[in-house]
Simulated scan of single mutants.
Amino acid sequence: MPIVSFNEVKEESKQNILKILGRRSERVSRWVGYTNGRHRTRYLYFAGAKKMPVMCHKDQAADLEQYCGV
């Protein structure tokens, strides 16, 4: 059974307005990553599967159901 987890990365960037002034911005990228089973999941997706059971950490179960689940 595929094991999935939610991942998050914070990216900082700096934009120079003039040579003296600069503006910093922070962007958060979030995604669902696979620890095991990504090829099987891709095959089932192309084969037409609408649902697939996965395993996740119990703290992330509510988030997985909210964003990806049925």
Rank of each mutant, 00 (worst) to 15 (best):
M52S: 07
K50S: 10
K50N: 09
I17T: 07
G69S: 03
E11A: 07
D59F: 03
L44C: 02
L18A: 04
T41S: 10
K58A: 11
P53Y: 00
G33P: 06
G37H: 14
A47V: 11
T35I: 12
Q15Y: 04
N7C: 14
R30H: 10
A49Y: 10
A62S: 13
Y34F: 15
P2E: 14
T35Q: 14
Y45Q: 05
H39D: 08
A61L: 14
K19F: 02
V32K: 02
E26V: 13
A49D: 01
D59E: 06
K19P: 11
V28K: 11
S5K: 15
R42K: 11
Q60E: 15
G48L: 12
E26M: 00
A62Q: 11
H57W: 06
L18N: 10
K51M: 08
S29E: 06
E8R: 15
H39P: 08
V9Y: 04
S25G: 12
S25H: 01
I17S: 10
R23G: 05
G22D: 02
C68P: 00
E26Q: 11
Y67G: 02
S5V: 05
S25A: 03
K58D: 09
C68I: 14
L21Y: 06
E65F: 05
S13M: 01
E12Y: 10
V4M: 10
E8M: 10
A62L: 12
E11Q: 10
E8G: 07
H57Y: 03
N7E: 14
P53E: 03
S29Y: 07
V32A: 15
H39S: 14
H57Q: 02
K10P: 10
R38T: 02
A47D: 08
P2Y: 08
H57E: 13
K50R: 14
P2N: 14
S13G: 11
G48M: 06
T35G: 08
R30C: 13
P53V: 05
F46C: 00
P2L: 09
S5W: 06
Y45W: 04
A61E: 09
E11N: 11
S5H: 11
F46M: 07
F6I: 08
R24C: 05
A61Y: 04
G22L: 00
I17Y: 03
L44P: 07
L21P: 02
G48Y: 09
A47I: 01
Y45S: 04
V4E: 01
G69Y: 04
D63F: 13
F6Q: 04
K58W: 09
L44F: 08
Y45A: 14
C56N: 00
Y43Q: 15
K10I: 12
R38P: 03
G37L: 09
Q66W: 02
T35E: 09
H39Q: 12
P53A: 09
G33H: 00
Q60V: 06
T35P: 01
S25E: 02
R38N: 00
A62G: 09
G69M: 03
L18C: 01
C56D: 03
P2R: 10
N36R: 14
L18V: 05
K10E: 09
K19A: 08
Y43D: 12
K14C: 13
D59I: 13
G22K: 08
